[in-house]
Nucleic acid binder design. Structure first.
Lengths: 130, 130
DNA sequence: GCTTGACCTGGAGCCCGCTCCAGGTGCCAT
DNA sequence: ATGGCACCTGGAGCGGGCTCCAGGTCAAGC
């Protein structure tokens, strides 16, 4: 415990973010994370900021954004403040896709529930309807 | 137009269901569809029932069910009415996963919208906050 | 009778997003 | 000083779900 100055080992970050060690390394390799700081021995030490960024990545991934587009977002972010409007546009477009996703999910879920209801009717009466 | 007796060519089915020709053939190959009827020339002719089943497949796929599990469902269906309770259980379990999916999507979407709001604040005031 | 187009088959290939591996280094506790 | 463990690297491999291809068959229209 020599540093309470908010750095985290790969293991801790994996634990906290739910990404595997391999995935964290992979994301750094492809440039989705910018190069993570290292200690004297060459081991990664993540900052609070890295973890925040990983939180964003987690949101985008979980909502189905492909890596290529997350890379685009990462690049914009690296380019500084003059890209904020582009970032807003990107996130809004994504938000719309998420909305569509939810709508589709709900629609299909309704159909599945209808099927369940139909099956219940069949077992309920003890005789097949189709 | 020799048959109005409800059979459909692969092209028509692809059109209607949104599955590609290759995907339809693939699904038949792996047993997700049972063997599709053929005309004299060996070309597939889908029935209304086939199309109905494809509708179910579409629901399950769009809600993220893996093919392996759809195969299990297909197998149960083929085995007849005594598997209906199992089918209900399978669909209910899936329905719960869909519910969780939607909840997760909504949660992440909220975070994304917050980020958009934050970015708006930044461009709005013309000065960065982070 | 010839072209065009929709279809057929078996099998190879592809993309995505990781995941695993071998071989090696360094820190820490006993 | 020795063992164990967390970590390192570059590169290969994998699983899921299609997608594409070559080479061939038939049917209908010009």
């Amino acid at each position: 415990m020599l540093s309470r100055m908010s750095v985290y080992t790969p293991g801790q970050v994996a634990e906290e973010t739910g990404f595997s060690l391999d995935t964290l390394r992979y994301y750094e390799r492809i440039g989705l994370l910018e190069p993570i700081g290292r200690n004297a021995a060459g081991q990664r030490r993540f900052t609070q900021e890295d973890i925040g960024w990983l939180g964003m990545i987690r949101c985008l991934r979980d909502t189905g954004m492909p890596i290529a587009e997350m890379l685009r977002f990462a690049e914009l972010t690296r380019q500084g403040e003059h890209t904020i409007r582009d970032r807003i546009a990107l996130l809004e477009a994504h938000d719309r896709r998420v909305e569509a996703q939810v709508a589709n999910l709900r629609e299909k879920q309704t159909a599945i529930r209808n099927k369940i209801g139909y099956y219940r009717g069949v077992v309920g009466t003890g005789r097949g309807l189709s």
